[in-house]
């Protein structure tokens, strides 16, 4: 397997201090990589730095062998990295369909954009059913679905997904993870951040634990799930309830 995304010694932050203190991470082609870790560990910050929303202060991010440090979000996007951010990212007063079209904004060919939109809508029924509604009128879970759909408009090689399952009911969460697996089978590499650590690691080929701005631990998804230490620190108590939650996911 070859790495599509390789991060070395990445340092980044917002104002004064640094949030990421030297992150190292490799993402294999065609894999699902899941990052877990406590609130404020810098998971979202890492994704934002990859997609160019935030400037790296030091270190390197290699995508398909070339450095993308210093690239604008636009050029990162056009290289083939899509980002579904943690907070709501739809345009609430625009229709669902216009939101989808915005996903293809950097494409100049409007006919191609429409064709892609039709293709994507086939995969996400919600987009088709409610295409004329204002996006802000959709429920949180439905909005997430539209966000994922939108990120596929450019057929990205790598999709960054930040806490996909946040605020979703168990059924929708299940659906969301299903979607991730589906995308992955269709050939997209997924780098996801997940608070639902068990469920996330369960579908992941590779897992990483972030804490305080660095990657603490890495391993296959399964090995992290089985690791006693990880379980104690990051997955919650191992008793009947936690286990049963893990098994339903």
């Amino acid at each position: 397997m070859s790495t599509v995304l390789s991060i070395r010694g990445l340092i980044a932050g917002y104002g004064w201090g640094d949030i990421l203190h030297g992150v190292d991470l490799d993402v294999e082609v065609g894999s699902i990589t899941c990052i877990i870790g406590p609130n404020g560990a810098g998971k979202s910050t890492l994704l934002k730095t990859i997609s160019g929303l935030l400037a790296a202060r030091s270190g390197d991010i290699m995508f398909e062998g070339r450095s993308i440090v210093g690239c604008t979000p636009t050029s990162v996007l056009s290289l083939g990295i899509g980002h579904v951010p943690q907070d709501r990212s739809l345009f609430p007063l625009m229709s669902v369909w216009d939101n989808l079209l915005m996903g293809g904004y950097i494409l100049k060919d409007q006919a191609l954009v429409r064709r892609r939109a039709d293709e994507v809508a086939e995969m996400f029924p919600i987009v088709k059913e409610r295409r004329h509604e204002r996006a802000g009128a959709l429920s949180g879970g439905q909005q997430k679905a539209v966000e994922i759909a939108r990120s596929l408009m450019l057929q990205p090689k790598v999709v960054l997904m930040d806490e996909l399952s946040m605020g979703l009911d168990p059924k929708s969460r299940h659906l969301a993870f299903d979607t991730v697996v589906r995308l992955n089978r269709a050939g997209r590499t997924v780098l996801m951040v997940e608070q639902n650590a068990r469920a996330g690691l369960a579908i992941a080929d590779h897992g990483a634990v972030m804490e305080a701005g660095t990657v603490k631990l890495e391993g296959s998804g399964k090995s992290l799930l089985d690791d006693q230490e990880v379980a104690r620190l990051y997955l919650g108590r191992i008793d009947g309830s936690a286990l049963s939650e893990g098994s339903t996911a």
């Binding site: 979000p73 951010p85 345009f91 915005m102 996903g103």
Partner: peptide, 17 residues
């Protein structure tokens, strides 16, 4: 669309190029 997008959610608009 870009004008409206930038109005409603600048960060998301930036993410979409």
């Amino acid at each position: 669309r870009a004008l409206r997008a930038a109005t409603q959610n600048p960060t998301a608009a930036r993410l979409l190029g």
